[in-house]
Simulated assay, not measured.
Amino acid sequence: MVLLPGRSMKRTRIYVPSVGPAAWQQFLAEPEKQWRTGYSAKTLAHCWEHADGLPLEIAAMFPAATELLFAIPEHKVPLLGGNRDSQNDVFALIRHGDQTCAATIEGKVNEPFGPTIGEWLSAPSDGKLARMRHICELLGFDQTPPPNIRYQLLHRTASALIEAKRFKTDEAAMLVHSFSTTKMWFDDFAAFASLFGSKAVPDVSAQIALDNGAKLRLGWATGNPAFLVI
């Protein structure tokens, strides 16, 4: 590789096509630790690459015929407060019918959703408090959600709304793509959905109209367990 004067080796906003599931590993926060058969990162990569478009269970989250315009693994979305972006397992730009959707996909097998809000704010820094205010503003909450709610679900959803605004899509979506055969941690997702007055049902999405006029789709999609052994 030839470096031009004044240019350094850093990531750019230019993306190249994937050459297969293994190409996803390099973007993980801990590539060697997280890339394991039966765990979400590797399972998700094989599922999405095999689909050559949207996996059927993700397409079923939308009311009309779908088309995957593009997908980016481990997509980082900056959030106010702190110095860590929200790193989404997949960001997908999706067309369904005559609508477009900016979707963040959270892959799961048996891994939990991380700390609750109560745990995350147990030692609140100015940065954390600023981030929580920013997320609440995006989601239309007038106060911090209950301490039992999983923080990860908040910032993944905030990421979808930020990207929907950036790409000027008709709606945002935060979809959990779970390969757990027992729907582990579904109750946490249902508790999060209830904040919007929505009753979560596996494999059925709900569209929510936020007070600021934004449209948000939430859903839990059950993945094919065949990808757990690849």
Rank of each mutant, 00 (worst) to 15 (best):
A92K: 09
D170F: 04
N212W: 04
A160G: 09
P115E: 12
L93R: 09
L210I: 05
E106S: 12
K165S: 13
A123C: 07
Q99D: 09
P112F: 06
D211G: 01
S205C: 11
W120V: 08
G213I: 08
S122E: 13
S180Q: 08
L138Y: 02
K165L: 06
D211T: 06
K108V: 05
A123H: 10
K183N: 13
Q143F: 02
L216K: 11
M132R: 03
D89F: 07
L153K: 10
E106Q: 12
F167H: 09
K128C: 00
F113A: 02
Q87E: 14
N148K: 10
G107N: 03
L195Y: 03
K165A: 15
V201C: 00
S86Q: 14
E163L: 15
E171V: 00
L154M: 15
N212F: 01
Y151P: 06
K165E: 15
P115T: 10
A190L: 11
E106D: 12
G140R: 03
S198T: 15
D187H: 06
V176I: 14
I135S: 08
A190Y: 13
F91C: 05
Q99K: 15
G114R: 07
R133A: 13
T100R: 13
H96A: 02
D188R: 07
A173I: 02
A102Y: 13
R95K: 15
I149V: 15
D203I: 08
F113N: 06
S178P: 05
F196M: 09
R84Y: 14
F113W: 11
I208E: 07
E111L: 13
A158Y: 03
R95T: 11
A123S: 12
N148R: 11
R95C: 11
D85Y: 14
D89W: 07
K168F: 00
I117V: 14
V176M: 02
A209N: 09
L93S: 05
D187C: 05
A191S: 14
H96N: 07
L139R: 02
F91N: 02
C136G: 06
S194P: 00
N212A: 12
T104V: 14
I208Y: 10
L139A: 02
M132L: 13
P145R: 03
G140D: 04
D85N: 15
S198F: 02
A130Y: 01
H134P: 03
A173P: 09
K183I: 00
C136Q: 04
